[in-house]
């Protein structure tokens, strides 16, 4: 039916929707309602709990409910944030968190985009499908399971690499106390697990590109590389920008399992694996102080929020259509 209606040329598509503001927003409001109500109840209602970060949380035993406890607890200003900056470890964990995330963001755009474009060029469709399915597999697995695999290779007693080293008569590396290789292992593990998933996002975006654009380009005599450069990449621009902005927002949050489970929680590796989230977790395990962990979370979020607004602002300057809001 109406599916076949429009036969317009997308390359000549106007940037702005031309007709005036929609007169009857009611129908659209009903569409937004279910999610909006959900967000209100499950996200905004609990946000009152953010004040926890500024309180010395104590229970009020005469009326021990979270809300009454919260109201009755003393305000302590920024006291709960102090533990993050107490020692020199703070520098290390902030450095690690930021450095790893920057690498993840850059490689997390370049490699999946390249893979998606390459997959798109594979002429044998079943091969493309098989590759793509296989690449998605690591995403099914939790970090704990990933840590088993890695351990199966580098374990100091049972590991396959260790066994090979032994067979060759060489020195056996104790991987879990040797810092050198870990930055690479961590970056690789992260890419390995997430590339397939991000590739799917870009691939779906490529699939959604109107083929008439390629046809037009082909008729104009564009080579394959030119088609990729002038048609595919511009069409992916929005997706790249959105994913970039969202990842920048999480630049102070680390993937806990990657930094905790994969190195098997090994102390000797802290200088290269300690990130904000693992530090807070280890602190929480001994103190059980929920006010401190929520303070840490809030700090990460506020910093992330600032980053996301900055990134969005920059993207907006360059290409208003690709910005998030």
């Amino acid at each position: 039916m109406s599916r076949r209606l429009p036969e317009t040329n997308p390359s000549a598509r106007p940037n702005r929707y031309r007709f005036s503001k929609y007169k009857k927003p009611l129908v659209l409001l009903t569409m937004a309602a279910p999610t909006a109500i959900w967000l209100l109840l499950l996200r905004y209602l609990p946000m009152g709990g953010i004040v926890l970060a500024f309180k010395d949380y104590k229970v009020n035993p005469r009326n021990p409910s979270f809300i009454s406890n919260l109201i009755n607890s003393k305000w302590v200003g920024l006291n709960n944030f102090k533990f993050l900056f107490m020692t020199d470890d703070a520098k290390i964990m902030f450095r690690n968190t930021l450095a790893y995330n920057i690498v993840f963001i850059i490689l997390g755009i370049v490699i999946p985009v390249a893979f998606a474009i390459m997959l798109n060029e594979v002429t044998k469709k079943f091969v493309a499908k098989a590759y793509q399915t296989m690449m998605f597999f690591p995403y099914f697995l939790s970090w704990v399971v990933v840590s088993y695999f890695l351990n199966a290779f580098i374990d100091g007693q049972y590991g396959m690499i260790t066994a090979m080293q032994r067979a060759a008569g060489g020195d056996v590396t104790n991987w879990y106390t040797t810092m050198g290789p870990w930055p690479y292992i961590i970056v690789f593990a992260n890419l390995w697990k997430n590339v397939g998933y991000t590739t799917v996002l870009y691939l779906s975006a490529i699939t959604g590109i109107d083929s008439t654009q390629y046809e037009a380009a082909a008729i104009d005599g564009a080579s394959k590389w030119q088609q990729i450069w002038y048609v595919t990449i511009p069409n992916l621009r929005t997706m790249i920008c959105i994913l970039f902005i969202m990842n920048v927002g999480k630049i102070f949050n680390a993937d806990f399992g990657l930094f905790y489970s994969v190195p098997m929680n090994s102390g000797a590796l802290y200088p290269v694996t300690q990130v904000i989230d693992t530090y807070v977790y280890r602190a929480f395990m001994v103190t059980g102080d929920i006010a401190k962990s929520s303070a840490a979370g809030l700090l990460q979020n506020v910093l992330g929020f600032i980053c996301i607004l900055t990134a969005n602002g920059i993207v907006k300057k360059i290409d208003a259509d690709s910005s998030m809001f």
Binding site: F83, M86, Q274, Y279, A283, T287, K292
Partner: peptide, 10 residues
Amino acid sequence: SNEATALANV
């Protein structure tokens, strides 16, 4: 508790 968090990590 601030000391405890730091000590635990050390």
